[in-house]
């Protein structure tokens, strides 16, 4: 009956995923954003982004190892969102809020987009 819940488990696992990313271990996809390259794990991308879910769940794209995003996506905004996926922290600033919002909309990360929108409104 019941279980022993390890309350730190989600954060501990995510930290390890981020360590793997930082050391480029077991990363299985490269994302090109306006000439900049980002290495990541497809499973994390798919779990966090509706856009990546649609891309990688498509049977033709299962083995895709590189992908280029639309040129309207800003690499700094994408970098913030990628960091967020691996850390749960969104490091928003006034100068990057709008580009991050646009990237979040493109990646179909609706909840993050809503947060960016509220952040921008609160600063006006």
């Amino acid at each position: 009956d019941g279980c022993i819940q390890f309350t730190r488990h989600p954060g501990d696992v995510l930290l390890n995923f981020n360590r793997l990313r930082s050391r480029n271990i077991l990363t299985d996809v490269t994302i090109q954003v306006d000439g900049q390259l980002f290495h990541a794990h497809k499973t994390i991308l798919v779990a966090c982004s509706g856009f990546f879910y649609s891309v990688f769940m498509h049977p033709e794209n299962t083995n895709l190892s590189a992908i280029s995003l639309d040129t309207k996506v800003d690499p700094k905004g994408f970098s913030l969102l990628l960091d967020f996926m691996y850390t749960s922290c969104l490091n928003l600033s006034d100068s990057l809020a709008l580009t991050t919002l646009n990237a979040a909309v493109y990646l179909q990360m609706e909840h993050v987009a809503d947060t960016c929108h509220r952040f921008i409104k609160s600063r006006q």
């Binding site: 019941g2 819940q5 390890f6 309350t7 730190r8 501990d12 360590r19």
Partner: peptide
């Protein structure tokens, strides 16, 4: 632990992969 349905374990749950540095 006996008779309690859910126990909260606050300690680390998995090993820690070393950072890059």
């Amino acid at each position: 632990y006996e008779g309690v349905s859910t126990i909260k374990e606050m300690g680390r749950s998995v090993h820690e992969i070393p950072s890059k540095d």
